Amino acid sequence: MEGTMFYWICWSFWVFLTFVQNKKSPYRLKLSAIILILLYLSNFHFKAGSFEIRASGVFLLMTSYFFLIKEKRGAIIYYFICSLIVSIAYVTFHLFEIFDPIWIIFKKEWMMGIVFGYLAILLQKTLKGRLLIIIIGTMQGEFLYAFILNKFPFPYPIGAFEYLDVCALLVVLLVGWSFLENAGSIFQSHFHFFEKGKQKST
């Protein structure tokens, strides 16, 4: 069922941020509010000309733009280039799915998660940068793909649950990869803490 992965992941992140995350974290309240608003808007859609657009997708895009404009000018230009690369790759993936579906060798959501997650890791070094270019790039790709399909008789809703499932999976994969990247420093700090405790006890 479309949307199931999106709801499970969003609620899991919200529970973690609300009950587990350090309350002094500057991102805790903002991210919790963003997740709740995203969940609320996921069932709303509107028409813009011949396009059907989900409110949750537009909210994600606007929120990402808001965080992006706070960066320095040079960083914004690089983010824009990276998100454009993701957008082109996103549209290309969907077009290949239509014209040559045989190369989809396993579940499409996981293929997209692995491909675009790897692309984000190559293009950006920080988790924040990876999430920004993925959300901006894929949502821009949604608009471009819908514009291309508008010439054909079958409609394509922008930012639908199918997209939200892929986006949520990408977030999990990128957060998990970021944790693995920083696992060494995390374990090292814990080991140093234990070593200091042993030295004091001796």
Rank of each mutant, 00 (worst) to 15 (best):
T63Y: 02
I98D: 09
K70E: 12
Q140Y: 00
M62Y: 00
V58C: 03
G74M: 07
G117R: 02
L149M: 13
F106E: 03
F59K: 04
E52A: 14
L60P: 08
F67K: 01
D100N: 14
I105D: 13
L123F: 03
I105R: 11
F147D: 04
Y78E: 12
M139P: 09
T126S: 15
I88D: 14
K125G: 10
C82W: 00
E52P: 12
V115H: 05
F116T: 10
I81Y: 00
K107G: 12
L122I: 10
R130Q: 08
K70P: 14
K125H: 08
Y65V: 15
S87M: 15
T63R: 10
H94G: 15
F116P: 08
K107R: 14
G57T: 02
E97K: 05
I76C: 09
E71G: 12
S56P: 00
L127W: 10
I53F: 05
I102M: 15
C82T: 02
M111E: 04
L122F: 11
W103H: 08
G74K: 13
Q124C: 07
P101V: 04
S64P: 03
G57V: 06
K125C: 10
A120M: 01
K107Q: 15
Y79S: 02
I148H: 12
I102P: 12
N150W: 00
L132I: 02
Y78H: 07
A89H: 01
I77A: 11
G74A: 14
Y145A: 03
